[in-house]
Write a protein that binds this DNA or RNA. Structure first.
Lengths: 208, 208
DNA sequence: AATTAGTTTAACAATCCTGTTAATTCCCGG
DNA sequence: CCGGGAATTAACAGGATTGTTAAACTAATT
């Protein structure tokens, strides 16, 4: 992916990202970040002044990543159910690219009220358009009677819940740090299939 | 609930529980636990020797609680779909009694491999019977053709995912520490209804 | 080559945190 | 009431950790 560790600042940021996400804020020592980055630890102060500053940069990036996992998947021009399927799968895969991030974000928010406010003020508003877009899609179908009436928020939360916890559970059952073994891949593939199916079924109209 | 803060050891344990779950292992300072418990911080060492020792006691309790949320809900003698509904709701409510615990458990496991092994060895085997009991219930219905074929593991993970993330999300959106406002209760009630419905629908037989 | 701004280094100060210990108080059985 | 073990306190040692700074180095410009 990123092939230019050109400047020290970027190197530090990437090292910090890795370690913060692995260990959380206070289990992470600035010296360790410096070591991982291969620079003198005074450099962290030179570029970022404080540990918290550096952390906030990382956290903002990652929180945006996690909460933005929905934004990019509405483009395709497909039939409704195909589109939903695509959204669920794309979301699943995006979490797969950073499987530790969601739990990291939740944990840090719950542990630290200041960060919760930060999220609410800066990031949730950005999610508004996603809801609205989904709302239009869903409402149109509901009106046609092709799907059951659901709120877009519930639908969104259902997708996020199934996908996020699939990876969280995988990290409890398996040792994720040693790469994706066939066993892990099988588990994830099964969950992916299951999640799509559950979401699609949740939209089906009930008949008696 | 617990009306006997009789001995110091118990007081310390309860204080530790509260703070560890709020802040995680390393953000928690032993002095703070002592202050919360209203005792000299040397008492922690007197009763528990080390911080890690104390943490492990708390963690084991809470991890067992979380993973045991399924065990107690299979008793009722009801029709299948009613039973599933009861299970989902009971699980939801048990998480509600300790809403921060699931994310706490995930985070600490992911941050600390040693704890993951601990979980796998001591706690997952205890979950085996739950799977088996569910398996019997499900298989019987599948054979009758009254529900779609699903693996009990998937069903279990689906329930856990929806319920756990409902509370995790609630803690991102709302300030949970100031008690349950009507707003929070409304959100949770809606999620509870939704989760039951999604799970039940996931079991419905597909028709064309 | 000299100047300068930007970067890096090494050493250190200050604080914080865990664990320890020796002395003191508490409480109960005799 | 007294002796002794358990519980508690105050004080501190040792280590880790973050942040700071002054000096040294680098590279581009003149």
């Amino acid at each position: 992916m990123e092939l230019k560790p050109a400047n020290t600042q970027q190197i530090i940021l990437e090292a910090a990202e890795k370690i913060f996400i692995d260990k959380g804020y206070s289990e992470t020592k600035t010296v360790e970040i410096a070591k991982e980055a291969g620079v003198n630890h005074a450099m962290l102060h030179y570029y970022f002044r404080t540990k918290e500053n550096l952390f906030n940069k990382v956290f903002e990036n990652k929180a945006n990543f996690f909460l933005g996992t929905f934004k990019d998947v509405f483009q395709a021009d497909l039939p409704f159910f195909e589109k939903i399927k695509t959204i669920v799968e794309a979301h699943f895969d995006r979490i797969g690219a950073n499987p530790k991030v969601p739990v990291f974000v939740f944990r840090e928010i719950i542990a630290n009220k200041a960060k919760r406010d930060f999220i609410l003020q800066k990031i949730v508003p950005a999610g508004r358009p996603v809801i609205r877009e989904l709302e239009q899609m869903v409402d149109a179908e509901v009106k046609k009677g092709t799907i059951a009436p659901v709120t877009p928020l519930d639908l969104l939360l259902n997708i996020a819940s199934l996908n996020v916890l699939s990876y969280a559970m995988a990290q409890v059952y398996f040792d994720f740090d040693k790469g994706l073994t066939p066993e892990i891949n099988a588990f994830l593939a099964q969950r992916k299939r299951n999640n799509v199916e559950v979401i699609l079924k949740s939209l089906k109209v009930e008949r008696e």
